[in-house]
Each structure stands twice: as structure tokens, then as C-alpha cells.
Design a protein around this nucleic acid. Structure first.
Lengths: 313, 313
DNA sequence: TTGTATGCGTTATCAC
DNA sequence: GTGATAACGCATACAA
């Protein structure tokens, strides 16, 4: 049954026949107890239905299943504190998880976290893994660069930025890269407009932008916020992309059906989830080769929310 | 440790102290083997990032955690066949799941499924459970009724219907109820326009509708499709809601930020997930009272995509 | 190539 | 109120 080859064919046949007849299946708990291996992957996510978590989960599940692992999930509430992460981690460990994927912004470099990752391998899904720095994360800086440069190349003289929730590391990375991309062209970055990923916050940011006559280009940190932002812009009588160009991030299914269709930087979440799973599995099993590394590069998808600035005058 | 009360306080204190000092935690697999109980709930979902699955999962996880259960997921590919469901079910059982929640359109009433549900309790998340008919499902017929009646009350003389994927039972229920609601007012239902939940299919349906001059009201089976549909309508020069009113289903976060903001029938997915989890747990533990039953009624959210028909002439 | 002990970390039962 | 002991169903190592 376990795929050994030192068995006489006839014997194997008889065993399999019996298995079939009796409907025998290994008892996972017993197997786990005896072997010391559970083949369970744990995933910690925020209890939200945000697109990124869902897409990530799909990828993780796929890769896990392909390698004979099952995944069990522990949700923490939105904006949970570090303690909640630790508890989730413990719950998962206690459940027997052999490796854990953190889909939340945990600081890995704390004493409490270090004890844990020492005994059971863990990685942050949106970041490079602990020791090695293979390209496991979607490069958040590349996202910002792609967005800003597209806008600048179109002829805009500066780019405003509506940031995501400060709680997430991506937010910081994108802000930095946005700033640097501007600086690199000798431009002075305008103040960041804070938001929190929700369409509502995008709407508020849109009202702010609408009140700035000189603004002609915006880099918004998510498609969902872009929907809110564009709505606010339209209500204020500013047209997109004629008056203001906007590029956002994610490329959710609805991005192509916004009005106008969103120019956005696509993040390969599913692929990233697969990479994350492959990586923990490799750590668990102690080999560093993970087979093929799934693609994790962001790509710019140009649609109709960006255009050259209106000629002055 | 297990909360017995026939222990001298002093002894209990010493035990707990030792637990603390040694960092002892029960080994889940060993406990499961010895007790015959795993406290694991299995969930079968399609490997999509559709809003409904994600929201459902959140609810399930919550209720499970609150009752000391953990959840493990088995994804099947989109549009999987019945066999894939059976396999997923088996995987979960084999993993030790004591109860299973089916987030997919499985036919429960087949021999193969009956053997399985006989040994481990299972329920469909969007339907009433097997034997009892407690209000576990979101009433899909009520959804259609709400939508159609809102439109009719506004003064429209008929309502077109863009249906979801036939693969899902909801689709059938909504179509029936849409038909009946029309019939109840002495109206003849126009032909159904088929689609498959995606914004793309909504777009195609929109082109179809745009070509029907007499159409003034549409009931679309999801918000995502509504985005596509409205886009097509606008491209064809038909205004929403002036020329055509549309009401959709789900009330996703972006619904309020569509142009125009979507009038839609909200489904309480998270709450439904909680209800589903509570229900399997009750089955597992053999009590029928599940505590408070979460709300599972759909509600109409009126926004700007519906209006009275334009006065004739 | 096949059969057989031993132990994995609990729970549950029963004697004390 | 407390301590000892037999399963639980498998994997593993080793004897045959």
C-alpha cells in the first residue's frame, strides 16, 4: 500500500483486493501518531473576503493537494494584533501543522515568533522567506514603479498616491518606490493620501484629489479603492482619464468592467500562493529545490483609465 | 486539564504549573486516536475566488472556532463533476473530519452520497439540510421575488432575467421564482438570457438586452454580471436607470460604487456560513438545538440602478 | 519476501 | 481523589 516494491505481485494483489473489499482506509490520526508526520499545512489569514486572501488560498490549496498535503485554516479578525497571530499560530501547531503560511502582516523577527518558527517552519506569503531570499514575494516596489513610470511616460508631470492601510507592509513598500520613482525623474512627491483598501476610503481620497486642480495622475493602491475614487472624481465633474489618469493594483475580475476600464498592475496571487506552499513544503521536507518556481512578477495591464494629460491651455 | 471537578485544588494547581513550565500541549493526533474524536470540520468548495465562497468560509471558520473545532478545506476545480465531489468528501473523511460542509452543488440524494452522509454528517451550505428543513439556506426564491416585485412596483411592465450558471441550483430556483412572480401579475415571462456569473457573460447579456427596444427592466443574478451588463448597455447608448433598470444579487463591497450604484438583493453569506457550521456541529454532537440561528433572509438594498420606466411617448 | 514486536501520546476504565 | 493500565490504528525496525 505504501508503494514499496519488495512485494510479490500476487501478494500485493491480494492485499489491494482486501483493501477494496473491506473499504479500508488509513486512519490519519493513527498514521500521524506513529510516523510523527501529519502532512498538514496551516494557513493564517484575516477573516475578510478581500480578493487577495481568497486568491492566495486557492493557490496554496492547489500546491498542497498536489504534494499530498491538506490545509487547515485559522482566521484572525481584521486588524488583529500580534497576539492574535501568535494564538493562531499556536492553534495550528497544536492541530499538528508541519508548516505554516502567514497571510497576515506578522513581524517574524520577534522573540515570540522566533521560538515558533524554530520548531515549525513558517513563511509570510507576501514576503521572502526567513533565511533565504528567493523571490517568493510579489515585488511591491516593482508595482509602484510600473504604475508611476507608465503615468510619467504618458506625459504627466507628477503622480499622486492613494496608499493602502498602514497595517500592511505592502503599503510602505509601494509608497517608498512611488517616491523614489518620482525623485529619480527629478520630481518632488506630493503628500500621500491615506486610505485603507476599502472602496469607501477610495471615495474619500477621490474627494480630496478632486479638490486639487493641478492633479492629473493618481496611483491608487487597489482596484477596489479605484472604484470609489473614480466615483468621487466623476461626482466632482472631473473626467477619467481626460482630466485625471488613474492606475491601481490587483486586476480583479471587475477591473475591466469599471467605467472607465481600469489600467492596473496585476498581482499573480494564485501563483504566489502556490509558491508559498511549495516553499514551506520544501522546508518541511528539508530539500531546498522546490521544483519549478511559479511566476511572481507583477504586470501592467493598460486599459482606459489612463491617458496623456490634457494639453495645457 | 480537561475540566473535571473531582480534583483537589492543590493538585490541579500543581498540574497546571507543570503544564506551564514544560510548555505541554496535547498532541492532537494522539488525542484523536484515543478518543475517536478529531473536532475537525471539512469544507468542500470550488477553487474560485468568487465572493460567495470566501464570505461563506469566513462564517464557517468563526462558528467552528467558537465551538472548539478547526476546519480543513478541500477545493475542487471549477465546474467539477460529481466524482470530484466524492473524492473531496473522501479526502476529508480520511483526514478525520467529523462533519462536512458542501459549498458545491452536489446532489445529496444519490446512492454514493447517501453512504457517505450516513457515516459522516454533511450539509449543503446553500440548501436546507438533508432530513430537517430548518431555514439553513438563503431563500433563493425570495431573492427573485424581491427583485421582480421591486421592479414591477416601480411601474415596469415586464422584467427580463439574466441567469447564473446552470450548474448551480440557485440559478434554477431564481428562474422559477422570477417566472412565477411575473405570472402572478398576469405577465408573460420573456425568454431567459443565459450567463455564467462572470462579468464577461454579463457583458454579453447586456448586448443582447440592448438589442431589445422594449426592455426596461432586468433582474441579473449577480452583482459581477451587473457590472458587465451595465457596461454593455452604456456602450449601446442605453442609460441605466433612465432607459433600463437593473437589480442584481449579492451586494458585494463594490456594488455601491458601480455607476450607477447597484440596487441589489443582499445575501447574508457570512451568517449562512455560521449557520451551516453550527448545524453540522449539532449533528455531530447529536443535539438538535444549535443555539441561536443566524439570520439567513435576503434583503433588498435600493440604490441608483433602478427607477420608474420612462413615460411612454 | 513476509511476519511480528514495539511504541507513538492520548483517553478511558478501574482499582485503590 | 489519585494512580495504574489497556486500548486507539498505524509505522518502523527487525527477525524469520
Amino acid at each position: 500500500m505504501s508503494g514499496q516494491d519488495n512485494v510479490r505481485p500476487e501478494t500485493a494483489r491480494r492485499v489491494l483486493a482486501a483493501v477494496d473489499e473491506l473499504g479500508y482506509r488509513v486512519h490519519a490520526a493513527a498514521a500521524s501518531l506513529a510516523s510523527g508526520r501529519s502532512r498538514v499545512l496551516g494557513v493564517v489569514v484575516m477573516s475578510t473576503d478581500r480578493y487577495s486572501s481568497a486568491a492566495l488560498g486557492v493557490g496554496i490549496e492547489q500546491a498542497a493537494a498536489a504534494n499530498g498535503y491538506t490545509v487547515t485554516t485559522a482566521s484572525v479578525s481584521d486588524h488583529a494584533s500580534g497576539d492574535a497571530f501568535l494564538e493562531a499560530f499556536d492553534r495550528l501547531e497544536q492541530q499538528g501543522a508541519e508548516g505554516i503560511i502567514l497571510g497576515v502582516p506578522v513581524e517574524l523577527d520577534t522573540p515570540a515568533m522566533r521560538v515558533r518558527t524554530a520548531r515549525t517552519p513558517a513563511i509570510r506569503s507576501e514576503r521572502a522567506s526567513l533565511e533565504d531570499d528567493a523571490p517568493l514575494a510579489v515585488d511591491q516596489r516593482a508595482i509602484a514603479r510600473l504604475a508611476v513610470e507608465h503615468l510619467l511616460d504618458l506625459g504627466h508631470t507628477t503622480v499622486w498616491h492613494v496608499a493602502g492601510d498602514d497595517y500592511w507592509i505592502e503599503t510602505e513598500h509601494r509608497r517608498e518606490a512611488w517616491e523614489q520613482a518620482l525623485l529619480a525623474r527629478g520630481l518632488t512627491p506630493p503628500p500621500v493620501i491615506p486610505a485603507d483598501w476599502t472602496p469607501e476610503s477610495g471615495y474619500r481620497a477621490g474627494r480630496t484629489i478632486a479638490a486639487i486642480p493641478s492633479a492629473t495622475a493618481v496611483f491608487v493602491s487597489s482596484d477596489e479603492m479605484a472604484f470609489g475614487l473614480i466615483r468621487a472624481l466623476h461626482e466632482a465633474g472631473r473626467s477619467v482619464p481626460d482630466d485625471i489618469s488613474v492606475v491601481s493594483v490587483d486586476d480583479i475580475a471587475l477591473a475591466a468592467y469599471a467605467s472607465p476600464a481600469l489600467t492596473t498592475v496585476r498581482q499573480p496571487f494564485e501563483s504566489l500562493g502556490r509558491a508559498a506552499a511549495l516553499r514551506v513544503i520544501a522546508k518541511i521536507e528539508g530539500h531546498d529545490a522546490v521544483g519549478e518556481i511559479p511566476e511572481t512578477q507583477p504586470t501592467l495591464v493598460i486599459r482606459s483609465s489612463t491617458a496623456p494629460p490634457r494639453p495645457a491651455g
